[in-house]
Simulated scan of single mutants.
Amino acid sequence: MLQGPTDRQMQLAAWSGLVVNVLLTLAKAAVGVHADSRALLADAVHSGADVFGSIAVMVGLRVARKPPDADHPYGHGKAELLSSAVVAAVLVLAAVQVGYDSIGSLFTAVSPPSPPAAWMAAAAIAVKEALYQYFHRLGRRLHSRSLLASAVDHRSDVFASSAALLGIVLALVGRWAGVHWLLYMDGVAGAFVALLVLKMGYDLARETAQPLMDRVLEGEELLPYERCVNGVRGVRRIDGLRVRDHGQYVIVDVKIGVDADMTVARGHAIAADVKQVLMQEFPRVLDVLVHVNPYYPDPPVDRGPRDSEEGGA
Rank of each mutant, 00 (worst) to 15 (best):
D287E: 14
S105R: 08
V301P: 00
L165G: 06
K275E: 15
D7R: 15
V292I: 13
M200S: 15
L172H: 05
V288W: 12
P115G: 09
M1L: 04
A130S: 14
D50S: 03
V254S: 08
E207K: 12
A122S: 08
L286C: 09
G60E: 02
T108L: 15
A151M: 05
R38H: 11
V87L: 09
L93A: 13
L18I: 01
R8Y: 03
C228S: 12
V169N: 01
I55T: 09
A70D: 15
L198T: 01
V87Y: 02
V290P: 01
V158K: 08
G53K: 02
M200N: 13
V51I: 15
L147R: 07
T208D: 03
A49E: 04
H46A: 02
A42S: 14
A49I: 00
G247N: 08
V179L: 13
V292E: 10
H143M: 09
L23R: 04
L217Y: 01
I251Q: 04
R175E: 15
Q11H: 11
Y225M: 01
L165N: 02
A95F: 05
V235S: 03
R303Q: 12
V229L: 08
K28R: 13
A130C: 11
L24D: 04
A27E: 00
M58A: 09
V252L: 09
Y134L: 13
A88D: 10
Y225R: 01
L26Q: 03
A79W: 04
D186M: 00
L106Y: 06
L196R: 01
A30S: 15
L278F: 02
H34V: 13
W181V: 11
E80D: 15
A44E: 02
R284G: 00
L81D: 13
G32K: 06
H291N: 11
V63Q: 13
